[in-house]
Amino acid sequence: MAASGIVFVLFVLVHMYGNLKAFSGEVAFNEYAHHLRIFGEPMLPENGLLWIIRIVLLVSLVAHVGSAVALMRRARAQRPVKYQVKRNNASSLSSRTMRWGGLTLFVFLIWHLLNFTIVKINPAGDQSADITENPYRLMVSSFDLWWMTLIYLVAMLALGFHLHHGTYSALQTLGWVNSASARAKAKIAGWVIAIVIAGGFSLVPLAVLFGVID
């Protein structure tokens, strides 16, 4: 759980950095997207790096979801009779919503891939090559729709929550939180990563919606 989670944290960090390229304009953004495909050539074939990343991510996803399901099953089997009254005293909202947050992110991920990677569905309706071959235009055209931006913002909220507990939890599971001060730092790390990543991702759709990027 922790190891695959850390792969995702690193991935979304890089992904977010890439997204912020949108602020540098269409040419720089598309250049970056294209460069990803030919990264490492000629040592790697075209799209080589991308496929390596995709495979690592897919394996991590299977591990992450698999662990989550296993944990959930064990928890269910362990408490077949529920409490009539149960109060939570210490847990953060984010820690209690990991499973829902994870599910939300999973559903979002499918849409996200359909939207930008696999089918390149343009929700604005224009399916011309001009759009599908130009990542920057596809993005702008998508986020010009208020509800698309909303979907992305909701997803980023879920991501922020997930990262807030996930980051701290991963550090704990890996055995790096062995004192009160380490705990305080790990909690801060959770906040920082959650805000930076969810915030960083949200900037682009918001910027498009409000016309900063067009």
Partner: peptide, 29 residues
């Protein structure tokens, strides 16, 4: 058949002796 730990922290809040979560991290380490 005990469940897995997801580092939620309800245990330490309920612990009458205030055993901190550090011990779980130590276990993991």
């Amino acid at each position: 058949g005990f469940g897995g730990c997801t580092n939620i922290g309800e245990c330490t809040a309920a612990c009458p002796k205030g055993i901190p979560l550090d011990v779980i991290s130590q276990l993991n380490k």
